[in-house]
Structure formats: C-alpha cells, structure tokens
Simulated assay, not measured.
Amino acid sequence: MCGRYSLSKSKDELEERFQAEMLTDFKPRFNIAPTQLVPVITSDSPKGFSFFYWGLTPDFGKNKPVSQKLINAKAESVHEKISFKNSFQRRRCLIPADGFFEWKKLGKKTKIPYRFTLREDDLFAFAGIWEEYETVSGESQHTFLILTTTPNEVVEEIHERMPVILNRSQEKLWLDKYASEEALLNLLKPYPTELMLSYTVSSLVNSVQNDSPGIIRKISPMDQFGNYTLFG
C-alpha cells in the first residue's frame, strides 16, 4: 500500500516537467496524506493540473478503516473489479510526485520510515484512476486512487507493494483515451530497481500534521530501540 508521498518541487518545475499549466498557487508538499487535495493530470485535461482528493474527501476520511481501503487499487485486477473497471477504461490520471514513504517493522512496536526516490531525485508520476461524484449538498467532488504493483528489489526489503511509477513515454500512453487495455496493463510493472534508491527519514513523517522540508531529509538508520546506528 502507498499511504504517503512527497511533492517538494516548485510550481515552475512541475509545469516544465509535465508541460501542463497550473492555474492556482502551489506550495511544495513534503508529507501528502489520504483525503488531502493535491494536483493530478487527467486524460480529460492533459495540458493542465487539476486538484483532486486522494482517496476520499475529508468528511469521509473521518472513517479511518474505510479511508485506508480506498487510497490504492491493485494493478493486477484494476481492469476486472467492478468498482474500478470503468475508471480504468475512461478516467486515468497521473499523480506527480518526487518520493514516497513506507515503514519497516522492527520488533512488535517499532517502525522505521523510509523514503523512496528516483536516483536523480527527479519528478515522476504514479499511475492513477479518478472518479467524480455528487455530495449530499449537491457539490461535485473528484477523488483519485494510486495503482500499486509488486515491489522491485529496492522496495521489497521494506514493503510487499509499491506504487506504479511511469516513465515519460509511458505517461503519454496512460493518458491516451484510445489506448488498448493490453497496452495499458503492460505499463503496470515495478519500476526498474537500478533507477531507484531509498533512505531513512525522521519520524516526523508519522504525523500528517507535519509538512516541512525536514521530513524528506536523510538521517541515520535507527535500530529497534530507537538508537542511531551506522548499519542500514
């Protein structure tokens, strides 16, 4: 499951990388969490950034057990499940990011947070699907899910799943409304191990209230007792 990611680049960097226009102000984000409103690029509007809720709106997000189930979709079955099939066929999106977080379990209580990035710390995009619905007050809301797949060798040491990361050429195909199902499914693979790296970060990332540059800063790994160590 991918439950937290970062987008620490500037508005100008985002517009340059994705060749899309952002009409609203954007501040770098270091600890993006479910239910928050964040930029995406949809197949309906590939030349501009839209702002959608990740998984659920804040109101629905109060139901934590539900919200945790509705932030990701498995790439292996997204084209078959009734709840996702229509979105996979018609409403695909890119979720810009520059890193994501997972936690390594040490003992029964300790979890060490890790950040995963591309080797050059470049911007990239997760493969996602989105949905539109009407709230009880009659307002239109948009939400998205991140697709996950089996992990590569970098991620598998920490977690059994990883988000689907697309390269630049794959991004265009993912947003192509006329792409075949076979071509789309072929994109949903683990990102090449040699192009990624990971490192431990501060436990500040554990709280969604924290959203500062210190969260993505590399720190020394800690052992299960919370002591700093030279060994990762």
Rank of each mutant, 00 (worst) to 15 (best):
G99D: 01
V205D: 04
S203Q: 12
Y114F: 14
F88L: 05
F101V: 00
S137F: 11
F144Y: 11
W103H: 02
A179F: 05
A125R: 03
E16M: 11
A179S: 14
V154N: 13
D121K: 10
G138R: 08
W130H: 05
L106Q: 10
A33C: 13
F126S: 05
G214W: 05
L184Y: 12
N186S: 15
I129C: 08
F60A: 12
W54I: 07
P96C: 03
E15S: 04
S67M: 14
F26H: 04
E181T: 14
I41Y: 06
L195F: 07
K9N: 09
G107Y: 02
D12C: 02
I112G: 10
L184T: 11
S87D: 10
P34F: 03
K189F: 06
E156Y: 00
R4H: 05
E160I: 09
S8I: 01
E80H: 08
Q89E: 14
H159L: 03
R115A: 14
V38E: 02
K108F: 06
K85Q: 15
N31K: 03
L70V: 15
E80T: 12
S198G: 09
V155M: 10
N186L: 12
L187K: 01
W103D: 01
E160Y: 15
G232C: 15
L7R: 11
S202R: 00
D121N: 14
P46A: 00
V78H: 06
Q209E: 14
Y5E: 01
R17S: 10
